[in-house]
Simulated scan of single mutants.
Amino acid sequence: MKRSLSLILAAALVFSMAGCGDKKETEEKTTQETTTEADTSTSTVSGTLETFTGSSLTMTTTDDKELVFDVTGATLECKDGMAAGDAVILTYQGEISGTDTSKAKVVKITNEGVETLTAEVETVHTISGTIVTASSSQLSVKTDSGKMTFSIQTAAIDSSLDLEKGDEVSIDYIGSINDTDTSGAQVVKVSKDSSSKKKSEEKEKTQTAEKEEEEEKPKEETQTQQEMSIADVNETVYAASDVYVRSSYDKNSSIVGTLRGGESVVRTGNCANGWSRVIFNGQEGYVYQSYLTTQSPEQEVPAEQEEDTSDSNPEGEQDSAEENE
Rank of each mutant, 00 (worst) to 15 (best):
L7D: 14
I8D: 10
V190D: 04
Q226P: 01
K219G: 03
G257Y: 10
I279F: 03
G81T: 08
R246N: 05
I127F: 01
A119T: 11
V278G: 05
S183H: 04
E112K: 14
A239D: 02
E95P: 02
P297M: 07
S196W: 05
E307S: 06
N273M: 08
D167P: 06
G146T: 09
S296P: 07
E325H: 08
M148Y: 01
G98A: 08
A185R: 04
L49N: 09
L292S: 02
I89V: 15
T182L: 02
Q93F: 01
T40R: 10
G269M: 07
Q289Y: 04
K108G: 03
V68N: 13
S4M: 11
L67G: 08
D242Q: 11
K105W: 00
Q225R: 14
A303Y: 11
V233K: 13
D172N: 12
E300A: 12
G269D: 08
T294G: 15
K192E: 12
T44S: 11
D80H: 05
E115F: 01
A239I: 02
A104I: 03
S247I: 06
T222A: 15
T40A: 12
T154I: 00
K105H: 09
Y249Q: 12
G129Q: 06
N111M: 00
E235R: 13
T58F: 00
S253F: 07
K205W: 07
T53F: 07
T224K: 15
Y173S: 01
D80A: 09
P297Q: 09
F69W: 06
V188S: 09
G19C: 09
R3P: 00
I109W: 01
V106P: 04
K203W: 09
P302D: 11
G282K: 12
I174F: 12
T258M: 13
K103M: 12
D311I: 10
E263R: 12
V188K: 06
T40I: 07
S97P: 00
S200D: 15
A12M: 15
M148Q: 12
L13V: 15
C78S: 14
S4I: 14
S151R: 00
S196N: 09
V233H: 09
S241M: 09
D80Q: 10
K192D: 02
